[in-house]
Design a protein around this nucleic acid. Structure first.
Lengths: 318, 318
DNA sequence: AGCCTTTAGGACAGTTAGTGGCCTCAATCG
DNA sequence: CGATTGAGGCCACTAACTGTCCTAAAGGCT
């Protein structure tokens, strides 16, 4: 085995089990103990921190250092990572969507086909988990997302079918620039070759993207900021409700139910809950769970919704 | 730069951008073109698939091969992966909890402290996301989880404080064996040194775990199956309701709202929804969302719950 | 303290592997 | 067709690696 291959193998061993006696490592790598010590030294020269314990039951241990060593993953671990990243990309944690897609692109691009199949099988289980697939939770197909991300990364022209709001599907040929996650939606900022101008596309309306394999000289985006471009392009955000409800319950109870999705301010004998939502299911759920008397201050649509559920449940009870 | 270091760097370059012209790679690695070609060959000998395109605008490209190459991640990517895995470990996708923790342990153990801090900051945003932190969604503190997982992996004895159901907190000293995810809970199977017997511990009742750094000869678990051991140890599962509701709506509408958490069977003029749950909030939410008339067949507790919400909402409306 | 185990690392000599320069081919694209 | 870019054989030179043998140093155990 060549030296580089052996170093990778050594790193892999050190990553799967904390302590390794020197002679066992040497045996596994089929080298003498002296060479093993030299290999360990080489790792240290590369910047990885390898602790050594002397004496009976001593051994080597890879520790956290200044930078992350190359991750050597088992197949199942890679699948778990990919599945986890897909959720993160779909907005389950605010602020890391873009990075998640970036990492996901990397992982998926390197996964052997069999792992990709395994991942797809698992992925089909994940949808509709968060508040039952309400309208604002249309998670984007992550295979489309990663295709677009890869094209952005590699500056590859793309073909796809785009169905704009209330329009016929049309075929597009674009030079992709960047993916942007805004609210719960993904947008692709790209230069449209046919229309000869910059556009932003909602990813959930993109179908059948395929990279052409060609390359081109990346253009400058006007203004230099993809995020700003997308924001400017969105004329009306999806309808948003500003919810205000007074609840006769302890502020902490309410805060626990609503998490970070709303603001709770103490009030005499109860509290005021404020949140901005796209879908009224969510506040209804919170109110049902808190289980205390409340008064809806706004919006009127929520009052209607509360009345609807009340009537519905009353009929069911009778 | 040594050969091994250069190979890692080459792998890293090939992972971040799809196409690389040969001369640019050679320049970055500070070697001649000839040596670069040899390096590429070395990668291929290690089993990685490197495509090459000749001619104008040619270059090299790392493709999916038979096995996953070492992942060379940017700092932010590692953080995204860790955050995603934490969610996966907490049961957001059935069946990959154990593997996720395994991968998480690996990643966290290698992350420099600064990244760990970054990750902690993000993690604090993730809780209470899925149906509002209901009682069955007490997600386990992932730092405890990974400490235990690491101890299992490395056969390190553990100290921790355990608060059994309805008992005083007690100090435990155990030889950890395996982590098991069952339903929505984590259990640690371990040999209790003081009591000299095998026990299973609910991870959400474990506090302040610390590894001693010693090691021991792993024991055989009686029966050889940690999962079976845990199942045998659970006298009564958390109270579980078998929900049966007839709904006057199209089966598909109901199926979309309930996802894979319940079974929907068509029925004349509507459908029958059956699901097993620990917490009645969940079916209430589904019913509110479907928005069609329904009749609760069982359990009686759900009827009570529906009546409660109905009354509550009616008062709010008036 | 004394002993055993295990890592640390210098010295040496033989061997291997890596390197750049030079050459000729072979694709690919315009 | 010609320009460009990867493929790879050959060669001489050098640097790096390897195993053996050695002594030292650090823990843990009795």
């Amino acid at each position: 085995m060549s030296t580089s291959a052996r170093m990778l193998r050594l790193l892999s061993l050190l990553q799967t089990h904390r302590y390794w006696p020197g002679d066992e490592l040497a045996e596994r790598l089929e080298v003498s103990g002296r060479t093993l010590r030299r290999d360990i030294d080489r790792l240290r020269e590369l910047g990885y921190v390898v602790d050594a314990v002397r004496g009976v039951a001593g051994g080597y241990q890879l520790r956290a250092g200044g930078s992350l060593p190359p991750l050597l993953l088992e197949d199942e671990e890679a699948v778990a990572i990919a599945v986890g990243l897909q959720q993160a990309a779909n907005g389950s944690v605010a602020g890391i969507e873009e990075t998640s897609v970036q990492a996901l692109t990397k992982v998926i691009g390197l996964m052997p086909p069999r792992l990709r199949r395994q991942m797809d099988a698992l992925r089909s289980q994940t949808d509709n988990l968060v508040w039952g697939g309400g309208p604002q939770n249309q998670s984007v197909d992550s295979s489309i997302l990663t295709t677009l991300a890869q094209a952005c990364r590699d500056d590859e022209p793309l073909h796809f079918t785009y169905t704009a709001r209330g329009a016929e599907p049309s075929e597009r040929w674009v030079e992709p620039h960047r993916l942007v996650s805004l609210g719960r939606r993904w947008y692709l900022v790209a230069y449209d070759r046919d229309r000869q101008d910059w556009r932003s596309f909602r990813v959930d309306r993109v179908a059948g993207p395929r990279a052409t394999g060609q390359r081109y000289r990346p253009r400058e985006i006007p203004g230099g900021d993809a995020l700003a471009f997308v924001q400017a392009g969105i004329r009306r955000m999806p309808q948003r409700y500003d919810v205000r409800v007074r609840i006769a319950a302890h502020p902490e109870t309410v805060a626990r139910a609503v998490g970070r999705w709303g603001e709770v301010t103490p009030d005499d004998g109860g509290c005021l809950l404020e949140m901005g939502v796209d879908d009224l299911q969510w506040p209804v759920m919170v109110l049902a769970q808190v289980g205390a008397d409340f008064t809806v201050e706004s919006p009127d649509e929520l009052t209607v919704e509360v009345a609807r559920v009340s009537g519905l449940f009353a009929r069911a009870g009778g």
